[in-house]
Design a binder for these strands. Structure first.
Length: 962
RNA sequence: GCCGAAGUGGUGGAAUUGGUAGACACGCUGGACUCAAAAUCCAGUGCUAGCAAUAGUGUGCGGGUUCGAGUCCCGCCUUCGGUACCA
């Protein structure tokens, strides 16, 4: 409807009605022109840093799930500004990543170009929503001016080792100095392999030998790691590109392949990462996830002799007390000793088993509980306590990177060991008597030792202590702390990531590229296919690789978490080309006060960032040991997915609609997956059935035929009593992603309802931390609210705001809202804030309140949620300065006083009546009053009144028995 | 498997410390205005029985603690996130 008249031709004053399209573009521009959201690094105000987890700019564009957290943090940032803080609230892009490279391989479009396009689109979409970001501080991890510093920090990691005594990182030059004075004896440092050498030996080593020794100590170091290798595709695959042991694309076999990889020694920081969790305002759930991820356990490192070899088998156990029950050993299939110790007779069986395991993912290996697998190596170890030779097996449930990759199996006291022993007929000796501890599980460290030599008769806890002493005395073991946390694999055989500032000489010794040469930029490439042997495409850019005289650059690139581990520091001083950020800027902003992002980053990103931050702290480059003081997780917005499952075909065999060849071709969907029917919702009947008739309509409709075939004659339809042919559609909630055709873009909503409505609707959907399905059904409610709010300021005459003094009731409504909204913002309950605004506006409307003394503070209260409408009304109220620079309204308790309180009257906990009670009455007076009520008499007559419970201000409960 | 979270009307959700279950919305039903529609406004709306007053029942399932349990305890079920190369 055009503004100015309605369809009857009646004149209306157009600004009396709320049209976001008349308001929002105007303020969007005005705020840019006036640099309203520009943040200074100098201010008398207290600082507050509100950070969003920056997005990966995918080709599907920003979807409605992204802004959920951004809107919440935007509201909080605006709220803090109104409260008088200098608020840093920046945004940027995590712009390196696999999808852009995949896209480049498919289309030939350079990742830099597609990424730039995606970023531009993201920016447009973000701008639409009215965020208060200071865009002058934007960062892009793929920008050389940014990744120069990612490379620089890597060089620091490369150039440092972890001194366990000082409990901090120190320069590798300190290490070489000590080695040349005292040899390895003088060093207590985190390392990959224990070495022992004298100062003399150190000095006589070749450069290459010294380099190998130092590599064991560096915080960024090289070691052999395993990758998912797909021979058919000639490339290394990410874990989520592998499904059931085959590549998701094409279904080719995938195996584990050993490659020399860079790693980061995050384990050196394990203890600090664990201990410092306490100081953080994170949810207990998140802290628990981090604790479990770090997985600290105290136990014993024990060495067993291997018969017929000059080798010691190192194992880690938390239950050294059960060593008398250790009847066999299990090694990870990838264990270094496997080839050495396997006997000729077992070679074939072992190789067959290794083949099987190489196609198994770690999740598969851990998740398999019903069926244990393993193979005997033919070798034996010696158990010095029982004096028996015990067989050494391989088993996939033992992982190479956890502990030492080998365990002593105690089948009596470990469930998996027990399953293993049962399956392969291995000996089981009971060593712990738990009969005194009914209800305790195998896992509990309780019971009395039996069949255990000198430990027999001891309590488990005492036996553990006793055994530690014994092992040390015998010189075959010691107390040790083990972490589940593993060093981070830091190499990717990809193009679209940060190049390593590392060059190898002819001996293969790694040298840092000089800082002056940073950034070491990516070469231009035409072809983004991996190079031969699964190497990064960079290996094909020979000129680039050999640009340093006599040296060859590393061709792998850094992983996604490199750039995202420190980006929050760059925002503090984003333009700096002398340092990653100036001391002054870091000194002012310190750390992130509030960090908002998804739980999916609970362990990965949040462990690595904390690790980098602690490292930079050790180097004196950041003032605190933790980057993120307070953190809240936003839930995911899911989409509804519609699936036709298990359709019957002709002979009764379970199949899908269409044929499998089409499916693979059209969407890459696996055969055997349920078939997706995008946007089918409108065609379903009440029981979620799609009838044959409706299917035809669905098929005709635009854009719906992603993976269904139009020829329905091949389908097997179910038939109901009326002869109606149909199949049932299952509705599930799932992640939004381009490949699922379920991405919902915010643009359309913003265009139709305005940004204010979109912002408030996203908040209104539910608690921020909960995942929930996207559905626009309820958006009209928020839209009506905004129109109603707008209408408070207008009457038939047009703009109509009164200067009258408000009544007590009006003040109470306002202050109820101020209290509720403020409390709820503080506890990040934004959905209930929106409800509180609705209640407030409903009540003011009922009173036809148009008084400035009420509407003005309310407008400021609403400004963080709906920045556009409030700015417009603020201007109309006669203010020359932005509402976003106003002062937050103060709550006044005096406005809340009430004469009577409404009490529910319950009998045995069930509500039977309500009563209004004078607010000044005491508890006893209320109790007496309750007895006189008709409703009470009815329930009490003829029964025993046991007692009357009065909870002041809350409720009255009568306890009655027969 | 392991770690973490969630489960409340037809739908999204509220109930902050153990104290009126279903706030606020959507949807639906009826009504007002209109030639009609849209928009707006008013009323009703957990379920079962009943004309009604009312009664019973009700927060994933099974137990328990309590005057009182969505909330606490024990045991399950289902869904979602992570599980180390998606970001």
């Amino acid at each position: 409807m055009p503004p100015g008249s309605d369809t009857w031709g009646h004149k209306i004053i157009f600004h009396m009605l709320y049209y976001p399209e008349n308001i929002e573009p105007k303020w969007r521009k005005a705020w840019v022109d006036s640099k309203l959201y520009k943040v200074s690094n100098e201010s008398d105000k207290p600082k507050y840093y509100v950070l969003d987890m920056f997005p990966y700019p995918s080709g599907a564009g920003l979807h409605v799930g992204h802004p959920l957290g951004y809107i919440a943090s935007d509201i909080y940032a605006r709220y803090k500004r109104l409260k008088g803080y200098n608020v840093l609230h920046p945004m940027g892009y995590d712009a390196f990543g696999l999808p852009a490279e995949q896209y480049a391989i498919q289309t030939g479009v350079h990742p830099a170009i597609s990424t730039r396009e995606n970023i531009n689109r993201y920016r447009e979409q973000l701008d639409n929503i009215g965020f208060c970001y200071d865009w002058d501080r934007e960062v892009r991890t793929c920008d050389p001016a940014y990744y120069k510093w990612t490379q620089w920090i890597f060089l620091q990691l490369f150039g440092h080792y972890y001194d366990m005594e000082a409990d901090k990182a120190k320069p590798v030059s300190d290490l070489t100095f000590i080695f040349s004075k005292e040899g390895s004896r003088g060093v207590h440092a985190a390392n990959s392999q224990d070495n022992s050498f004298t100062a003399e030996e150190w000095k006589t080593m070749t450069a290459r030998q010294q380099d190998e020794v130092l590599m064991n100590y560096r915080l960024a170091y090289r070691k052999t790691g395993f990758v998912n290798w797909c021979e058919a595709l000639g490339t290394v695959l990410a874990n989520d590109e592998v499904k059931d042991g085959v590549s998701e694309r094409g279904g080719h076999p995938v195996e584990k392949k050993a490659m020399m990889q860079w790693s980061l020694r995050v384990t050196a920081y394990a203890e600090r990462l664990l201990n410092d969790l306490e100081s953080l305002e994170w949810t207990d759930a998140l802290k628990a996830m981090q604790r479990n991820w770090i997985g600290r356990s105290e136990g014993a490192q024990v060495f067993f002799d291997i018969l017929g070899h000059d080798l010691k088998l190192e194992i880690f156990t938390t239950r050294p007390d059960t060593i008398f029950g250790a009847t066999f050993m299990v090694l990870a299939p990838e264990h270094d000793y496997v080839q050495t110790i396997t006997t000729a007779g077992q070679k074939e069986a072992v190789n067959k088993y290794l083949d099987y395991v190489s196609g198994r993912s770690e999740v598969d290996r851990m998740a398999e509980v019903k069926e244990v697998t393993g193979v005997f190596t033919g070798a034996y170890a010696f158990n010095p306590f029982t004096g028996k030779n015990i067989p050494i097996w391989l088993g996939e449930y033992v992982l190479k990177d956890y502990g030492t990759g080998a365990i002593m199996a105690v089948p009596s006291d470990d469930e998996r060991d027990q399953l293993f022993a049962r399956k392969f007929g291995l000996e089981i000796i009971d060593v712990v008597d738990k009969s005194n501890y009914p209800g305790s599980t195998l896992h509990d460290k309780t019971g009395i030792m039996v069949n255990s030599g000198f430990l027999t008769g001891m309590e488990v806890t005492k036996a553990i202590r006793e055994m530690f002493m014994h092992l040390e005395k015998m010189g075959i073991g010691s107390k040790k702390v083990n972490y589940k946390l593993r060093d981070a694999n830091y190499s990717r055989q990809r193009y679209w990531g940060e190049p390593f500032p590392i060059a190898y000489d002819r001996d293969g010794v790694a040298h840092p590229v000089s800082e002056k040469q940073l950034p070491l930029t990516l070469p231009e490439l035409e072809n983004f296919q991996p190079a031969s042997g699964g190497k990064s495409p960079l290996a094909r850019a020979e000129d680039w690789v050999n640009q340093l005289d006599g040296m060859a650059l590393e061709t792998d690139t850094m992983p996604g978490f490199a750039g995202s581990s420190w980006y929050f520091l760059r925002y503090m001083d984003a333009q700096n080309d002398q340092a990653f950020a100036s001391d002054k800027a870091i000194g002012y902003w310190q750390d992130v006060d509030l960090y908002v992002g998804g739980t999916e980053h609970a362990v990965g990103h949040l462990i690595y960032s904390r690790f980098w931050h602690k490292f930079l702290y050790d180097l004196g480059m950041v003032p605190g040991t933790e980057p993120f003081k307070k953190l809240i997780n936003q839930g995911m917005i899911t989409a509804f997915g519609y699936y036709a499952e298990h359709l019957k075909f002709g002979d009764g065999e379970d199949i899908l609609i269409g044929n499998s060849k089409d499916l693979t071709q059209i969407s890459g969907v696996h055969v055997g997956s349920p078939i997706r029917l995008p946007y089918v919702y409108d065609y379903l009947d009440g029981q979620n059935r799609l009838t044959k008739e409706k299917f035809a309509e669905y098929w005709q409709s635009e854009g719906h035929n992603y993976n269904v075939a139009g020829d329905t004659s091949k389908y097997h339809w179910s038939k109901d009593e009326q002869g109606e042919e149909y199949f049932t559609v299952n509705i599930v909630q799932e992640k939004m992603s381009k490949s699922k055709f379920n991405v919902q873009n915010p643009d359309e909503i913003v265009r139709r309802y305005g940004a204010d409505c979109f912002r408030m609707y996203e908040m209104f959907l539910g608690p921020i931390e909960q995942s929930k399905p996207w559905d626009t059904k309820g958006i009209d409610g928020v839209n009506r609210f905004l129109r109603k709010y707008w209408s408070l300021f207008f009457s038939d005459k047009g703009w109509d705001v009164s200067q009258e003094s408000p009544t007590a009731e009006e003040y109470k409504i306002l202050h109820t809202a101020i209290r509720k909204v403020t409390e709820d913002i503080e506890r990040f309950s934004f959905n209930t804030c929106v409800s509180a605004f609705m209640v407030c506006v409903n009540e003011l409307k009922r009173l036809e309140c148009n008084k400035q003394a009420i509407l003005e503070p309310l407008n400021v209260l609403l400004a963080p949620f709906a920045p556009f409408i409030t700015e417009e009304l603020w201007e109309k109220l006669g203010h020359g300065q932005s509402v976003h620079l106003a002062a937050y309204p103060e709550f006044d308790e005096k406005m809340m006083q009430q004469d009577t309180i409404e009490y529910p009257v319950c009998v045995n906990g069930k509500k039977r009546d309500t009563v209004h009670v004078d607010a000044t009455l005491t508890q006893d007076q209320i109790r007496e009053l309750a007895m006189t009520l008709d409703a009470v008499r009815k329930y009490v007559t003829g029964k025993n009144l046991q007692k009357v419970i009065v909870v002041p201000g809350r409720m009255i409960n009568l306890v009655v028995s027969e």
